[in-house]
Design a binder for these strands. Structure first.
Length: 565
RNA sequence: UGGGGCGUCGCCAAGCGGUAAGGCAACGGAUUUUGAUUCCGUCAUUCGGAGGUUCGAUCCCUCCCGCCCCAGCCA
């Protein structure tokens, strides 16, 4: 197969403010090298938004000769599963990135994190609070009113230490006590109103098992994990912006081995889709899709199954850019990146999605011949392949109209067109069933036009793709369109209410040329004139199933649509 | 009405005081054995608005408007 891993013409990633900051730090000597990290929580599959973060973090490390760690932020055992951690590693690798020796888990640092928590207690910067969750919420105040101190805020160091140790020892049930940082209950920043550092969770952890019954919160674990790994630039999305003061506060009050800095960028939003783990999880669990890797899903696994090469995804992310402005990227940009990547590389084949039989009356019955077709129109090196031609062939139903409008170039009564790489044919007669449906066309061909050109220089307006009845292979083709029927799903309420009921169309009577039987699973080929398709894992021997990766640009469809108004 | 951010073409996005890059989309036209591709061309007298500073402002200042995030013992 053709190599789709070649570098696209435009650079995958350009300049952006994060890269400028890192570059500046390197030049000024603030850091000697760059170390970034991609820190997913293993509670779902990676999606386009993660792809942006992966390309940014691993991309920066690669470009500047640094390292990027893959760190699982596994601080909440009740939500995390090994299955997700496995899929995450597979997806990051598929995207083309390598963490080398640096596969880490926040849970690897539980012991150190615990020791530092005691340090905070000893220096008077943390205390054990017995306040119940709902009471704590009340005491925290509101966005406009300051919070009030917990009655347990001034316990002695000794008492706090004793209580915290007993929390660890498992003496208390879930929810009865937490460890809190002592900062400022009146802060305008809610994250600084004595944030919870540890909570009691008698839960089995995928990696640490039952060794712990208290678990650090994200806020407490993240920055310290960064420091342990000597991360120089901790890049995350905008919603963590007001966690940064807390991130810095903790680093300021702990004897950490390095001083990472956090930077935030705008998360990716894409029109006609949804990118929140909560919604994606619901799509899967409520069976709106067949799974996390359903080709309609914006997950990396779904996109891969659709037949999108990883270069195309990286190309898309590169085109999107990195900034701090809230934005929603048009899905058309993804489609465009996919086409631009596939067009120069994908082998061409012929497949008829909705077959219409064409009988060539002046072609000898029982006879077939072998013709040659190019595997790529712009690349002679892709070579030729043999295709069979015969008296009965199939063309696309859309390529015939009994009463065509003026701009219709394709087949219609009396009209001559070219069958790609074969002959000129002229439609002579329409065969209909009792209901009046067109079931076949009787045509004649011009034997002199073999290969697709007439010696007399005659021109035709259209070239049609086709397959020969003699050796066409039946196939199933799955056509996908947007999972949601509006660009901003959920804008009026529940996003799941905006699901497009027609996002999947299964065509079972398709006919494709036999060369397609050799296609490797997941690698897109172009069905001439219709789009890019990739063999699905559901294929059976002799019974291929194709996913449409993306359609070709179709100006005729556009003209028709605008004509209909 | 608290704190933190963001507003440059329909959608992304450069720009960092010297007179608005690029991509996607759209629209023309050329080439074409894919109505594809490729190619050429059009597409912001204007940077949320109003003032101000300056010889000069999208870039600096002031005020206003709009949008996003934060009140999990989620991340």
């Amino acid at each position: 197969m053709v190599d789709t891993e070649t570098t696209p013409t435009t650079p995958e990633a350009g300049r952006d403010f994060i890269r400028d900051i890192v570059q500046g730090d390197l030049e000024s000597g603030r850091t000697q090298s760059v170390v970034t990290r991609f820190p997913p929580e293993p509670n779902g599959f990676l999606h386009l938004g993660h792809a942006k973060s992966i390309c940014l973090n691993f991309g920066i490390a690669r470009e500047l000769g640094g390292a990027c760690h893959l760190r699982f932020d596994d601080t909440n055992p009740v939500k995390e599963e090994q299955l997700f951690a496995d899929s995450i590693q597979r997806d990051v690798k598929w995207l083309g990135f390598d963490w080398g020796e640096h596969l880490h888990y926040a849970s690897d640092y539980f012991e150190q994190l615990y020791a530092w928590a005691e340090h905070l207690i000893q220096t008077g910067h943390a205390y054990v609070d017995d306040t119940a969750a709902d009471a704590m919420r009340t005491l925290r105040g509101t966005l406009t009113e300051p919070g009030r101190n917990s009655p347990f805020r001034d316990r002695s160091v000794e008492e706090n230490l004793g209580l915290f140790r007993r929390m660890r020892a498992g003496e208390y049930p879930n929810g009865t006590r937490v460890l809190r940082a002592r900062i400022d209950m009146a802060s305008g920043n809610m994250n600084l109103r004595d944030p919870v550092l540890y909570r009691i969770l008698h839960a089995h952890h995928p990696r640490t098992g039952d060794a712990w019954c208290i678990y650090p919160t994200y806020d407490y674990a993240h920055g310290q994990s960064d420091a342990i790994e000597h991360i120089t630039h901790s890049v995350c999305t905008l919603e963590f912006e007001d966690h940064r003061p807390l991130y810095d506060w903790l680093l300021d009050h702990l004897p950490v081995p390095s001083r990472p800095r956090q930077y935030e960028f705008a998360r990716l939003n894409v029109s006609y889709t949804v990118l929140s783990k909560r919604h994606l999880t619901r799509l899967v669990t409520e069976k709106h899709v067949t799974g996390w890797d359903d080709p309609r899903m914006p997950t990396i696994a779904g996109i891969r199954r659709r037949g999108v090469p990883s270069v195309a995804l990286r190309e898309f992310i590169g085109r999107v850019g990195v900034a701090r402005a809230y934005s929603t990227v048009d899905v058309a940009m993804l489609d465009s990146a996919i086409r631009d990547t596939l067009n120069p590389a994908a082998p061409r084949r012929m497949g008829v999605l909705r077959p219409l039989k064409l009988i060539i009356e002046n072609y000898p019955e029982g006879q077939t011949e072998t013709l040659e077709a190019r595997n790529h129109p712009d690349n002679p090196d892709a070579g030729l392949r043999p295709i069979t031609f015969g008296r009965e062939i199939y063309v696309e139903q859309d390529d015939f109209m009994e009463n065509p409008p003026k701009k219709f170039y394709r087949l219609s009564p009396g009209k001559e067109v070219r069958l790609r790489y074969a002959y000129f044919v002229t439609c002579r007669e329409i065969v209909k069933d009792d209901a009046g449906n067109v079931v076949a066309l009787r045509c004649t061909y011009d034997p002199a036009s073999k290969g697709g050109n007439s010696p007399d220089g005659r021109k035709v307006q259209a070239t049609l793709h086709w397959v020969a009845a003699a050796d066409a292979v039946p196939a199933e083709v799955r056509l996908y369109s947007h999972l949601f029927n509006r660009p901003d799903p959920g804008a009026d309420g529940d996003a799941l209410a905006d699901i497009n009921p027609e996002s999947l169309e299964v065509l079972s009577g398709c006919l494709v040329e036999p060369a397609l039987l050799d296609a490797p699973i997941g690698e897109a080929v172009q069905f001439e004139r219709t789009g890019y398709f990739a063999l699905d894992q559901d294929s059976q021997p002799g019974r291929p199933v194709f996913n449409r990766t993306v359609g070709l640009r179709d100006t005729w469809a556009k003209v028709q649509a605008s004509a209909k108004g």
